[in-house]
Nucleic acid binder design. Sequence first.
DNA 1: ACACGGATACTA
DNA 2: AGTATCCGTGTC
Length: 188
Amino acid sequence: MLSVSFFQRDPLTCSRELIGCELVWDDCAGIVVETEAYLAEGDEACHTFARKSAREFIQAHEAGAAYIYLNYGVHWLLNALIKGGSQDGFILIRAVQPTRGIELMQQRRKLSAITQLGDGPGKLTQAMNVRGLDHGTSLCSDPRRWFLLKGPQGEVMADKRIGISKAAHHMWRFLLKDSEFDSRKPSH
DNA sequence: ACACGGATACTA
DNA sequence: AGTATCCGTGTC
């Protein structure tokens, strides 16, 4: 399992290197195929820019903690806390390729198509049952929830982050090239 | 194209 | 209290 030290480095490096790792969450698991990096300082799209609670979260938690919040009042979104490297930040998990617990994911998503179980940040949390009460729990020490290093699964490419109005030009979205499980095709 | 829906942080 | 904003999804 990825240890705390993995998350104590530069957020952009962590975001890129999480691609190809397997996210294990209780009875379900999937290969991470898409992430986005958010920087705690100087990034207007990061929660720390407007939310006191996000800044306090960084203070109060160790690197590798799960930062989970409700988006648009509908979807839980899963992030990993990056802390203690050159700069702090968050990595948003945007898409996974299901590997374990697929039947459970199909039940929760009310869908059978494997490619649609985790091809979006809100979809994968629904499929894997990631909820608000898991906010703050560690992704480095909980025996049921961790990241597994699996080695390169293909070519990783960078693209602009999705769905944000501020600081939208940064190429801080990382995805597995040509994966059917990405939430969106790259823009160029 | 648009409805859905709640936490957070503002204003007063 | 009320309002603006927000890292999305499903269906119209």
